[in-house]
Write a protein that binds this DNA or RNA. Structure first.
Lengths: 335, 335
DNA sequence: AAAAACCGCTCAAACGATTGTGCAATTTTA
DNA sequence: TAAAATTGCACAATCGTTTGAGCGGTTTTT
């Protein structure tokens, strides 16, 4: 049924060692005769032998596995990221253990511990929360960790992220160029570095246009509900903004829901620019103008840097920000 | 640095066996004195010991891991399914290895083999292709396999899927009830069982309404491009249909793209019903009327049946079809 | 002809846990 | 007080590989 080296060894009349060496391609290196080698290979093929990866993992102290900690696979942004990472990892002959942290710091830390116990060779993570002691210790003492999207400011852990500042700045400038002055910004988690960079970009663009007096930042979660509630609040103010800058895809969905309830039309009644890109946004009412993050590039780069570290190479710069691009939709009106 | 049973044993002056028994909670079962047990626990806690899961896997011949073979994480339908499955698996104390087969039968089979070599305790798979000899052999000889969404017709492998026939029938009936007679159906992979059930539902609904003369089924892939090209072809016919039934979310995106290029408006110029549901569809132009598959229920049920088999329980019915629901959008016009 | 080199393979330890059995020392029972 | 039972732990095998060292026999070198 389940074959192993020893069953093959006894059937071919050689030692386990010899079988192992032949089947791992080291026959000539250890001077196994061609005749013996062929006999072993034939038997292995006949009985459909495949080595136990579990046993190899133990002996080699290497699992050819990497762990991926993602906050939410149901978010298309992270799903695409996971998809790209998994295929990059696969391309290198590794497999991926995926842990969905559901945006919870406890789950995140538990996942990290689990991955270390499973002796993954590397970890790619989108962190939750601000406490980086555990992940930092793991990166120093056990396996290389690579952060994607989110990161810890002023800290040494390597990461690949979007140039969120530029994204915030460009999106805001776009609205300003269209004549908007009163631009509200609905943000996500306030302790998230990308969020704060986006906000900083927004503020700088406003300031540069001498619109600081109109600055308005609200919100505290990257969720549909947060976008919905903050928009509800915004609309109830006596001075309604002419544009909204939503700092994530989910926030935008919430904004849209609130606007629809209020029977306000985009871009006639209000303009909207969203962070994040997704194919569906082209078919929305109207197609959204948005800041597209280079998801695939980030994934590939994160994998590359991680594997360089796994392979013992010391990568150069390992805190990288890739430029986002603006995708023009029809959700911004000229004033 | 990396602690193991032997370092703890030598520091506490007992045998490895004793340490193992204490730390795995079997102290009293093997009559280890309280004093010794406490001493060992204290030392383990002090040095932050965690057992090597790799070693446990080998010895216990169990990995507490399940493999998930998904065709494409960038498809929101499968991403949500993966998300639900991963959290169900996690809830049971297992971890998930995810393999993205990219809709390729070769990748699928390679993934299966890999998972078996890694000795996962069970496999949840959305299969690709029609040849089920490998997956079937694995299910019989190695680990339990559970199919989701797609399955092999007239074959014993257990699965959970949507009642695709009902989905096809209901969606078509809805269009018929709205007065449509000429309803085109754009299908996906023709060898896929769900696809064919949807088509069968479509045909039966047409027949029941005595509209067989208007039946029209085209297409061969669950992709945006297929939806796009088939719509282009449809529109170039001299008798244009009044409605399109698209058998997947991606196909619908392609339809929308083609209609937009032709400057045709939904539902005024053409009606559309789509298979699959996604939050974004509510914000599209117009919100789509669609057949929503019970993704989460399928995931939970698939996990339950798989774990029942892993635990040696013999589940009752294990080829299940869950009913889809229709979500009313505004993409169907009355004639 | 002795020394060196080579050939073809095996031994045994190791990776880090789990587990059935066994064995002294102590305590209880008869 | 001798036999029986209990206590508290250790020995050693096992899971399935990998790998450095070694060994007897043949061939080549000096």
């Amino acid at each position: 049924m389940k074959e192993n080296l020893s069953t093959i060894a006894s059937r071919t009349g050689v030692s386990i060692t010899t079988v192992s060496r032949v089947l791992s391609g080291n026959a000539s290196k250890y001077r196994i005769s061609n005749a013996t080698a062929e006999r072993i290979k034939a038997e292995a093929a006949r009985c459909n032998y495949a080595p136990s990866i579990v046993a190899q993992n133990l002996r080699k102290r290497k699992t050819r596995t990497i762990g991926l900690l993602t906050p939410s696979l149901s978010n298309p942004y992270f799903a695409e990221m996971a998809s790209s990472i998994i295929s990059e990892v696969h391309r290198r002959g590794y497999t991926t253990i995926v842990i969905d942290t559901m945006e919870d710091e406890g789950n995140f830390n538990e996942g990290l511990t689990q991955l270390v116990a499973r002796q993954v060779d590397g970890i790619i993570a989108v962190p939750c929360g601000q406490d980086h002691t555990l992940v930092d210790g793991i990166n120093n003492d056990f396996v290389p960790v690579m952060l994607v999207d989110r990161y810890y400011e002023d800290y040494a852990l390597p990461y690949v992220t979007t140039n969120n500042y530029k994204g915030g700045f460009d999106a805001t400038s776009l609205l300003i160029d269209a004549g908007h002055k009163s631009i509200a910004c609905i943000q996500g988690v306030r302790t998230s570095a990308p969020n704060n960079e986006r906000v900083r970009g927004y503020r700088d663009a406003m300031e540069e246009a001498k619109l600081s007096a109109f600055e308005f930042v609200a919100g505290n979660e990257f969720s549909i509900q947060n976008g919905y509630l903050e928009t509800k609040l915004l609309l109830s103010r006596h001075q309604r903004p002419t544009a909204i800058f939503a700092l994530s895809n989910n926030i935008s969905l919430g904004v849209l829901k609130a606007l629809r309830e209020a029977r306000l039309r985009i871009p006639d009644d209000l303009s909207l620019v969203s962070f994040d890109n997704y194919a569906y946004m082209d078919y929305m009412e109207p197609p959204l103008t948005r800041v597209s993050q280079p998801v695939e590039d980030m994934a590939i780069l994160a994998a590359k840097i991680l594997f360089d570290r796994i392979d013992g190479l010391t990568p150069g710069a390992s805190q990288l920000r890739l430029s986002p691009t603006i995708i023009q939709g029809e959700s911004v009106g000229r004033l």
